[in-house]
């Protein structure tokens, strides 16, 4: 579906700002002049006031900002969970925010992987079934049953990878916060997405667990060449990113490369 939007690439190239100035290729995911406001009673509260942002393939970008600065909203709009009032979201240079519901559903299911602050596992399902959910959604009964062994193995391997090998049949209520977030990471990856969007993935965890999740994400980012956007207000965590963008009053205020001395950043550069 992206090919149909190739004609827009030129426009994108000229419009999108490239902070580091060394990219010649099209950004993997980009935002052009995104604006979004919410209604609170009768007053309209603008949250995003024209956000321009481009994320390269395989890049790990941390989005920082004060509470209410619109970090989560930006992530939701980029991940097609919400529509912008103005502006556009492009994937590989093709506009995706104005697609029909079915295509948006398919993109959410196949291209994006979501990780939430509160894990958001389905309480009725075991860890394994939760991880399988994106694949269950992708396929009808016949398609799923035909490939269920492969999928199951894939989900089990992911659970092993995030360190939940012995917890497959446990319900979310029987898992700790860190374990639930690990399961959520596995769920985000099971559909083999290109982009992972994480909304404060460590915000509800203690320091040790938070660090572990972050390490995991960082490792997965490198192993699988995943593009990642990570919303956080913890600068400690942001320091592990390739790049940090800061949202202030609905605009991207500054771009900064990861601080000097960051081993991850160093390894990337």
């Amino acid at each position: 579906m992206n090919n149909s939007h190739i004609s827009r690439i030129d426009a994108l190239e000229t419009k999108s700002s490239t902070p580091r100035g060394k990219r010649s290729m099209t950004a993997h995911l980009s935002a052009r002049g995104l604006a979004k406001s919410y209604r609170k009673g009768k007053t309209e509260v603008p949250v995003l006031k024209g956000v321009d942002l481009a994320v390269d393939r395989g890049e790990l970008v941390a989005v920082m900002g004060a509470s209410g600065s619109g970090k989560s909203t930006l992530l939701h709009v980029l991940g097609l969970l919400d529509s912008p009032d103005r502006g556009a979201v492009d994937l590989d240079g093709g506009r995706i925010d104005d697609l029909g519901d079915r295509k948006r559903d398919a993109l959410r299911n196949q291209t994006f992987g979501f990780i939430f602050q509160f894990y958001h596992l389905l309480p009725e399902l075991s860890a394994l079934d939760n991880v399988l959910m994106p694949l269950l959604i992708r396929h009808g009964p016949i398609g799923y049953m035909a490939a269920r062994r492969t999928y199951r193995r894939r989900a089990e391997a992911l659970l092993d990878r995030v360190g939940l090998a012995g917890r497959r049949t446990h319900k979310p209520a029987e898992l700790s916060g860190g374990e639930m977030q690990r399961a959520a990471v596995a769920r985000a990856l099971v559909g083999e997405p290109e982009i992972v969007l994480a909304d404060e993935p460590t915000g509800n965890l203690d320091a040790a667990n938070g660090r572990a999740i972050l390490e995991l994400l960082r490792d997965l980012n490198r192993e699988r060449e995943l593009t990642m956007m990570l919303v956080t207000h913890d600068s400690q965590i942001a320091s592990r990113a390739d790049r940090v963008v800061r949202l202030v009053e609905g605009r991207i205020e500054e771009f900064s490369a990861a601080p000097e001395g960051s081993d991850f950043a160093a390894s990337r550069l």
Partner: peptide, 10 residues
């Protein structure tokens, strides 16, 4: 909301 985020249709 989670189901829809994971791509479930209306």
């Amino acid at each position: 909301g989670v189901l829809k985020a994971l791509g479930a249709s209306t």
